[in-house]
Write a protein that binds this DNA or RNA. Structure first.
Lengths: 133, 133
DNA sequence: CTTATATATGTTATATTATTACATATTGTT
DNA sequence: AACAATATGTAATAATATAACATATATAAG
């Protein structure tokens, strides 16, 4: 290996796994990722989960919590993901990252009754997409 | 058993599991629930998951997706839960249901770029609670 | 360049979370 | 009483995720 992570470069495993997720039209699950990268030498679940953790941390991908699946960041790529919102079609499972500045402003400034402000949030909307309606 | 679910009554297993979650100060995980209700005759994971599914469907409890844990509804109890928001302390894991009419109004009326409106949402905020700050 | 430290990888085993499949029982309705 | 719908019981297994430990590579400091 030439070098590891200078600046924001990805390591070998991270790159392999990011590429797969990034070119996928739909969110991928950890073991489906594992299956798809075995030919590239990634053999164990832990290797996948470690790369996923780092990629999430960097904001390159997001986890769709209600689906245990991972999707490449579709917004301001490569930023740390502290504020995520997704649209999920309950029929066809099409999942899209929502990019709405009014929504993100509203949520970033939201304070609860005790005045607690939050450093991070994840929002998942459910409904029917155009096709499925 | 005398009767099952007339009106909104819970069945035997649902009641046992709801009572446990309702009196718990913190969200409970499925297998911790299972362990705690084995003395009451509920022996298998599936019995727990089935009751949990129904209770979520009825809005008596909510699932905290990022934690795979279940919490009793703390808002308008016993309504179908289509709109949920939680506050999660990343230090002590204290989790609270957020009850803010402005937030719920904002989200219930949110439309994305394509004009898509949603029938359901789940929002999880992360930060540090009062004690942990 | 060499050493130290942090980060990444490889590997095995195992823990945790959730569902499939099938049989039986109870409820509410006709 | 007969039926359909819902709930329960049980065993097996699938799917998701982490612990523990060894090795390798990268970056920073001397």
């Amino acid at each position: 290996m030439r070098r590891m992570h200078k600046e924001n470069n990805l390591t070998k495993n991270q790159q392999i796994i990011f590429d797969l997720i990034d070119k996928s039209p739909e969110p991928l699950k950890a073991y489906s990722i594992l299956f798809n990268v075995q030919k590239k030498g990634i053999k164990a679940p832990l290797q996948v989960y470690r790369a996923l953790d780092k990629l999430v941390e960097m904001g390159k991908i997001h986890k769709i919590e209600s689906r245990n699946a991972f999707i490449a960041c579709q917004n301001s790529s490569c930023q740390v993901s502290k504020a995520t919102a997704f649209s999920i079609c309950e029929m066809c499972e099409k999942i899209t990252e929502i990019s709405s500045s009014s929504l993100s402003k509203y949520l970033a400034n939201f304070k609860d009754k005790d005045g607690m402000k939050y450093s991070k949030y994840n929002l998942e909307f459910f409904g029917l997409c155009k096709k499925c309606r």
